[in-house]
Design a protein around this nucleic acid. Sequence first.
DNA 1: CTATAATCATTAGCGACCTAACTATACGTC
DNA 2: GACGTATAGTTAGGTCGCTAATGATTATAG
Lengths: 198, 198
Amino acid sequence: MYQEVLDENYQPPNNNATMPKQMYTLRDIPKYETIKAHAARYPEVDPASSAACVLLMRIASDILSIVDNYLSGHGLSQGRWQVLMLLYRTPELPQNPCELARKAGVTRATMTGLLDGLEREDHVARETVAADRRMLDVRLTVKGRKYLEEVMPGYFLLIRRVMRGLTEEEKEQMITLLTKLGSTVELPDNPNVATAVE
Amino acid sequence: MYQEVLDENYQPPNNNATMPKQMYTLRDIPKYETIKAHAARYPEVDPASSAACVLLMRIASDILSIVDNYLSGHGLSQGRWQVLMLLYRTPELPQNPCELARKAGVTRATMTGLLDGLEREDHVARETVAADRRMLDVRLTVKGRKYLEEVMPGYFLLIRRVMRGLTEEEKEQMITLLTKLGSTVELPDNPNVATAVE
DNA sequence: CTATAATCATTAGCGACCTAACTATACGTC
DNA sequence: GACGTATAGTTAGGTCGCTAATGATTATAG
């Protein structure tokens, strides 16, 4: 059913997309051997850690670029996409900008900007809350939901395509490793961006 | 020898660091079960792909933040760090901004900015090339090299620390998986940023 | 040997994130 | 009830990547 997308020669649609900023730029990745040789002279270097780390960054960044590229072809950025998806997950109950910022992992200031843009395009609506007049409720509009439902299938097909190099078993293995790794990766805390959800 | 750094309560030094920009913000990562449930209704969704992908992004982004945070504590950004490291790898032969841009994976315009900053601090020097007067040669200054040699040990210890959740075998496994995944992840080409080195 | 194309470095301006400071509202304590 | 503190949303200004366009130089085609 999805052969054409998973096909080797498939090119994802990219109408008037602007090139996204990359997150990790380095392209001249040192070879594992080079790192090992380097480690011989510098006792701080753990070759496997360095190699895994740089590879992880490089590939994650590439995937992000691919996804951003798809989204920007539909006039969306990662941030805007995430807001729409967060609202889509719970269509019945609206959420505050503050809550959305926490879940999306951006500052409240950034969320203001994201919502400004989405509201301007009539994809979301801000409503005042009677109970607490500091807060707003943000809802997905009908137009926003329809738009999202147009973009979603391509998005998930793209993810599937991006990961097609791994077998089902390897993907599970990856999830296991990343989950384990994630449990010891601790962010320096930033007072402006909440790192925990709920 | 490095116990204190690998210790659970160790806090990496972070003198006057500014919080780095994140690359992937989403913090409200959907549970694997949620994704599977979602997949039941949307045939495009491959649960393992989506879960692995979002985890990969989340963790890579966190690691990048940690590293950026360390670097910014020393007045460096990823871009500037990479330039210094590229020059450090081949101390005898200087490189052009164009070449550096290619290896660092940024545009030539961006490289101009990076070199401006590094030259202002006297960490690199630009020299005209007699043979081709369009080009410049960029060298690491003595000050730049010394500075780099101060920052490097902490950097590599930090990488080692970040990856400490995985055993040596698991790191190797990760490298294998990422290498395999990387071979099928193809970037949309950007005329302004070279994606291949050499 | 001139005309056109390609390459190098730079500049100017943009987008998406950030911090810090502000206003408005809510709440706990005396 | 008044007061200090906390929270929600916004605004202003910064950073670092990007694109597009420029001037200077070199390569290539006729």
